[in-house]
């Protein structure tokens, strides 16, 4: 699958996909999307590069290990569990505050959102690790 077209396209498409996935993540609370979908998209976009070139290349190019992605994601999830119990009454209770944003009512940010970001990173890590592992073979071209 070492096609030139794919390789060139990947340069642009990949970044498009990543940006798109972040948007999906951000709007997830109000429109279709969210951490899972965004994460899967982002993961697939990284994988796309793997298809275009070789996974080995992607592996060397990627500065952050997929496991760290997962670790970071789970960490965010874990962190989002705690404010509720300290500020309100129960674990995972949503804590919201508004980030002022010019010309709008402001952007609402809360622990559930943090949670979703955690899911996002986790899913990226998982997807990439899946692909790495399953393509971990010298005969793979």
């Amino acid at each position: 699958m070492n096609s030139i077209i794919l390789q060139i396209a990947s340069k642009y498409v990949r970044w498009l996909l990543v940006i798109f996935s972040v948007i999906i993540l951000l709007r997830g609370h109000n429109a279709p999307g969210g951490g899972f979908i965004g994460g899967l998209l982002a993961g697939l976009s990284l994988a796309y590069k793997g298809f275009a070139f070789t996974p080995e290349l992607l592996k060397t190019e990627m500065k952050v290990k997929p496991e760290s992605f997962m670790g970071l994601g789970l960490m965010l999830i874990f962190i989002s569990v705690w404010p509720g119990v300290f500020i309100k009454s129960a674990f995972m209770e949503g804590i919201w505050f508004t980030i002022p944003f010019p010309f709008t009512e402001g952007y609402k940010f809360g622990t559930p959102f943090l949670f979703d970001i955690g899911v996002f990173f986790t899913v990226i890590g998982v997807t990439v690790l899946f692909l790495f592992s399953l393509s971990n073979n010298k005969s793979w071209k």
Partner: peptide, 19 residues
């Protein structure tokens, strides 16, 4: 504070499942 109920269920109402 979410319009997408499915997503709100996932990350808030039933966040433990998602965890």
């Amino acid at each position: 504070f979410g319009e997408n109920v499915v997503n709100v269920i996932l990350v808030d109402f039933r966040a433990l499942d998602t965890l």
